[in-house]
Design a protein around this nucleic acid. Structure first.
Lengths: 342, 342
DNA sequence: TTGTATGCGTTATCAT
DNA sequence: ATGATAACGCATACAA
């Protein structure tokens, strides 16, 4: 076998025109059964496969979705899996690119995938991304865009998000229910939407329970284990140290846990801990870590469905927003009352 | 702004031919500076971007690499990151597809990405994949293929792999050095190459140390935490139970650890445990788990480099093979001698 | 039922 | 220095 066979090859071999071959291959009705049979047979033999590039150029659509994510950690990988699932079923191929939390990389990815290579984008923006002209430009070129997880209100597009505020609220309220009162929060950079929303939930729970907010208990640090470790060390050295910590990611919870153990404090007796994401690791530590679970796979599926609807729909969908609810999973690190709900 | 502007649009607006526009845009020398300036200005204004589809159709290359992996767990995600890194730098875009350990999905992914959409494939085959005609067909269509991690000798292609046997050997030898003598192994399905190789290393270490192989201590189960848990439970209920367990993945090590704890045995005193992959979680459990580290990021980079060389190289590279060495990371779960190397 | 001609966006070749 | 034309692989309107 040589280079991919083309319609032309088949036509030449059979001494007929390319249009007839094209029709036969596409199951058109008006082709004589015998010629059609001959064509199909030869196509099979030559392992003919239509050239998607040519088709895409002609149809102006590639049936390919560009998915851009800041990284492929557990949650995002799960979401991508959900996207993949739905897209594949609908006949779309998914191109996954990682921006590595870098605005520059995101720009590069977008521009590479643009230029007619993809029908549109499903994107979760990097933590560095503060300007959205690159996405607006895509829209003005009639590319479909759906945002998910890390979104921005600056772009008018369908959005699929988690109710992060509710997640923060559930976590904090639970800690309060367990009798903790000096509750610290390890948040991300104060420019990151999902971080701020989770903190809003934290603040709301405090307020609802008439607990005064102590600014010293609100820490902004990198979404990362090492920073969380250091930040927690400082927290524990305060004169009036917190009796509970809510971290907005499980990675950070791990860092906090290491610092807590190092200090010789017991969870949940001396100090309570709740993380976010419900990564599998939370069930593996000692003690196991309570964590806010997000329906990542479902979110991915919902996102892909929205995207495909957007492609097939002329109506304006820019105000569409799906908000999924998180669910707190209570484990050992924060359950110190026997009466607590299971 | 409307649909992407084309060369034709610019030519019409400026009342010149498309060839001139094309030349100007491509920085050709023989274009009058003034016309060139006008063209560049208009291109900028219209946000002109060359249509990659048309270019690819013409040049018969897409500058896109199809990457197919069985899943996106920690190790593979890290490898993909390495691939991405090198590919991006070389001007290639990466399409990542997950086969979900399914042969059918792998076929689908390959056929979708084929059809001239990608210049070639970087693939780690699914655990279900036992036939390789789909890959051979690609090669006969002159697509470049590089295999990595999970490879097959049935395909003649450059390969980048870990020295899995050495990994198994290091792990087992270490356990022996620590004074363990009844060492069990939790392996994967006996059709999975990397599993068998790790087991070969295990057997070699036993043989080198004149320890008789006990078939009852060799367990084949799914690459998965739950099965490992169950298998370990059985192992611990044997009349002469093992005093150490080597699992060929960290997930399995976690499962084993749960069963060990449940049984009330202490690591490393009563029983030693070594995993494989050195996932971050191994440092978070209590006790921390010793594990064989593979240079995943480096492997990804090496793979992408090999692939790009293959694209630019007419010579036969099918016998090229890069074998990377693993490195045992010793932690609490297996270090019971104070004299042990750190 | 089949063939011819055209176009998708671009570049390369060959004129002019 | 610039323009006309063909080609990449395919589908389709139109002609036969």
């Amino acid at each position: 076998m040589e280079k991919q066979a083309t319609i032309k090859d088949i036509a030449q071999a059979l001494q007929i025109s390319t249009s007839t071959v094209s029709r036969a291959l596409r199951n058109a009705t008006d082709v004589k059964p015998e010629t059609k049979a001959a064509i199909m047979a030869l196509a099979e033999e030559l392992n003919y496969q239509p050239n998607q590039l040519a088709l895409s150029l002609l149809k102006k659509q590639t049936h390919t979705i560009g998915v851009i994510v800041p990284n492929l950690d557990y949650v995002l990988a799960t979401m991508v899996k959900g996207i993949d699932e739905v897209a594949l079923e609908a006949g779309y191929t998914v191109m996954v690119c990682q921006s590595n939390e870098s605005y520059g990389r995101e720009l590069l990815n977008v521009s590479r995938l643009n230029a007619s290579l993809v029908d549109g984008f499903i994107i979760s923006v990097s933590s560095e991304t503060k300007m959205f002209d690159h996405l607006k430009k895509l829209q003005s070129n009639k590319k479909a865009i759906v945002m998910f997880d890390r979104i921005t209100s600056e772009l008018s597009a369908p959005k699929i998000i988690l109710d992060n505020e509710d997640g923060g609220f559930q976590a904090t309220q639970h800690l309060i229910d367990q009798g903790y009162s000096r509750i610290a929060i390890l948040a991300g950079q104060d420019t990151l939407g999902i971080s701020n929303q989770r903190m809003d939930g934290y603040l709301k729970a405090l307020k609802n329970n008439k607990i005064k907010v102590d600014k010293d208990l609100i820490i902004h640090c990198d979404f990362n284990q090492d920073y969380a470790y250091l930040a927690t060390k400082e927290l524990l050295n305060m004169r009036k140290r917190p009796d509970a910590i809510f971290t907005i990611s499980d990675r950070m919870a791990i860092g906090a846990m290491l610092a807590i153990k190092e200090k010789g404090l017991k969870m949940p007796e001396d100090i309570g801990l709740v993380g976010f994401n419900n990564e599998p690791v939370t069930a593996l530590t000692t003690p196991q870590i309570s964590s806010v679970e997000q329906p990542a796979f479902e979110m991915g599926k919902a996102t892909a469905k929205m995207f495909i609807e957007l492609l097939h729909n002329d109506a304006d969908m820019s105000d569409r927003e799906i908000i999924l609810k998180p669910k707190l999973v209570i484990r050992e690190s924060s359950r110190r009352l026997l009466t607590s709900k299971k």
